[in-house]
Nucleic acid binder design. Structure first.
Lengths: 186, 186, 186, 186
DNA sequence: CATGAATGAGGTTTCATTCAT
DNA sequence: TATGAATGAAACCTCATTCAT
């Protein structure tokens, strides 16, 4: 792996563990095994690393969700597939997922600078399902339940509160959310 | 209001807007209208302000939840009351609620130092309802949906995504979660 | 005891234990049982406390030495009496003695502002004895041995290295120094 | 000379002239010709500079004394050599010697953290000579006279009170102390 | 006389960034 | 590309002193 990739990888891990401001350029350099100055051969600034990471993983999740949803024609399958893809990404890239949440939390306003925000896709999905009458819960509430539950499922899994294989968790969560929002909606 | 209370108030606002590390003691002092040194007559350190705030609001929400739940004997009423009290607190103290989330996110390990963590009460409630057979969804998933939805409902309300009066939102959320977790559980 | 005296007493203790710069006005106020501001009712500044203390104890020792030496006509008795008075003062006022040494060490140049420096008397004594042929050691060396030994005897006594009653120590030290400098001098 | 050595050298000078607390990191940086921040690339903290200096010079004097004393078999020569080595060190490293005294005075409790304290060697020497009957003065008093005189001889020399070449002073002091403690002891 | 909040200067330390090598 | 010393701004904190009460 190139040094640049290594920097991104180590920075991501540190950002997700300690926070962005709490991670110094020196921390990153030490984790990579180079010195501080060398970081600046690859990135203009610390913030550039942050932006690169956020943009890269946002886009990756966005495209995975987009691709997966395109394949499905059935509404239920589409919804459940979105949930699974989302959790699959979080389980596979826990540091990235945590980092993205931190970025959203503390620097939410800067999110606008990016295109391909996964949240947009989930919102569109919910709106679409609602328009088609499949999802009778108001879309704003549905969105809150969907995104909130997804984030917490990831969190509780990484904290060891939620047991079970990834597959089981993904399927159970998809099932639960579908029931809650579509079948049970009022 | 005393200077100490003013410091806590302004610090809370800044922490919730910019993050903890991102807020300097000077920022707080300026917001209060005093100099940095004066802060230290009231608090030993910046961290002490953070701890005071987290402890204070954790406890407040904890006790409100506890008191409200004690009053209810009916399972459904108890659950819904918990949801409403929780959201009521978040709506009334948006800075505190945001701040508590930030603290949990970035300094989760330090949460152990505190007693009276609202999360504990919600977990106990879920476990109790589950034991009594009211809540057929597995408790870990139910907890994820409950806490995740609550946080997002607050977030979307403060972002303007969720419209409606506080009362409407609280009741709708309570209804929705009860349906999702109790009536609809599988 | 008046507040002013109490301030001097507590300040002396703290200065001798921790050093002058290392002792804060707040430390002193706390030890006295008043607040910082009150100190300034009695002293213009922290430095004024330092000066008062140095002046006061310098003068006290100076006058004790002077008075005692005036009484003696015999050379040997005069020398030994000086040693004993000196040690007696140090044993009775260990904080003052330590403080004076610290002041000499770190702010030696300011000593010139004071009259009645005990060191002057010891030097005069040595010079006088030397002029009279009693003390054949060169006066500069004799002075070094005299003052150095006195300081160390005090130090080792307060550290518990030197055992024995004050009386024994005073007499033994006087004897030893007289032998070393007068009888044994070369 | 490397920056690290330069920092140690300038810090030593300032510490010995003004005291440790009285010397700021900025003072040191200015003396070296760099900025404050640069100090911290070489030392973790100001205190680390203090410890490095004390450890370094303690050890140096310790080892010089040890080596010199090992060579001598004759009791008198051994004692006198110790005196001379000690003064030689003080004359050659006046800043270090003053600094070590200040450290002992104000932070004596921290001395325990160091091994190879020259004082230990002098104490052992005195005890040994006493056990062998060469030194009839009680060892505690002998130690007081020895260490006190050495310190004062250095002090008076640097103040210009004691005239003469280093060699003369060293020999005279060794002679004087030997007479006082060994030949003259009672 | 005393309080204690506040000031303001200055202390130690941190850190993103630059730059000569 | 990389090093690592250095900068400079700014962070947190301390403390002698002042002042309204």
């Amino acid at each position: 792996m190139g040094t640049k990739e290594l920097i991104l990888e180590k920075a991501l891990k540190l950002f997700s563990e300690k926070g962005i401001k709490e991670t110094t350029v020196r921390d990153i350099a030490k984790a990579v095994g180079i010195t501080e100055g060398a970081i600046y051969r690859h990135f203009e600034s610390k913030d550039q690393i942050v932006y690169d990471l956020f943009g890269r993983y946002s886009e990756e999740l966005y495209e995975k969700l987009e691709k997966a949803m395109e394949k499905q024609t059935d509404r239920e399958a589409k919804f459940k597939e979105a949930v699974k893809i989302f959790l699959e990404f979080a389980f596979r890239n826990p540091d990235a997922f945590r980092f993205m949440n931190i970025f959203h939390y503390l620097r939410g306003k800067e999110v606008r600078k990016f295109r391909k925000i996964p949240f947009q896709l989930l919102r569109d999905l919910i709106l679409e399902l609602h328009k088609e009458g499949v999802l009778r819960t108001e879309p704003e509430y549905a969105l809150a339940t969907l995104t909130g539950t997804l984030e917490r499922v990831f969190l509780y899994k990484s904290m060891g509160i939620l047991k079970g294989s990834r597959k089981e968790i993904k399927e159970r969560t998809a099932e639960l959310l579908w029931k809650a929002l579509a079948e049970c909606g009022s």
